[in-house]
Amino acid sequence: MKVLVTVKEVAEVADDFEIAGTEVDERYLEYDLNEWDDYAVEEAVQLKEDGPADEVVTVTIGPERAEETIRMALAKGADRAVRVWDDALEDVDMLDVETKTNLLAAVVEEEDPDLILTGVQSGDDALGATGVSLADQLGFQWGAVVNALDFDADAGVASVHRELEGGVEELTDIEIPAVLTIQTGINEPRYASLRGIRQAQSKEIAAKTLGDIGLDAGAVESDLTLTSMYEPESESDATIFEGDAGETAGQLAEVLREKGVAE
């Protein structure tokens, strides 16, 4: 079985930052592997270590800069990577779900995986929709927000828990080919070992343009246009204690006593 994992490099914003136009100023951004994808990669690598999967391939939509992040996934045990990028994507300020679906579906057609793992959402734009949209486009089965996965290789069935609200989980059997969107906590993502990091240097990251995967610029016309970005006005009417740690702790202790919860 071949497992494809979608991974995304996401930007994280510093505590203090500035907005330039409709973007956070580049100086305040740090890039990292999307938290949810880290769990998806781990789940795929475990499927390989446990037997059912023979190959784990990651796919990313992102510029060359993203390769550092992709290598992290390779260092954790993915076999190789595909990275899609194109000049036509350079000017799109917000890739919509349809665009990501088109790009990933084209890669799936080439790779022909049996199982696709995505993160539930990405930490930056948090659309939370790519995996399910992709599944529908491919005619695959799917399950969203999966926090436990048990794979029966003979039957080709993934028995999953879908984490609903309020401490309730839905138990579902899903036939492959399928897309599962992976929730944090499903496993304990490993740290890349030194050996893994060394090996990752020689693993393949295949860069592909739109033309390479049989698409043209029409496939990436986004229906979403970011027209403004701003810091939400603080609705806070909190009393903020002033002073050094000792002073603020003293005031806080006072409040706790006043409310009668601590003595």
Partner: peptide
Amino acid sequence: NSVNGLDYAPAVANRLDLPLATD
């Protein structure tokens, strides 16, 4: 935009070819 919403809304949008804005 619930857990079940995330399980069907993207498929609805894809099938009907509708632009989707979540959350």
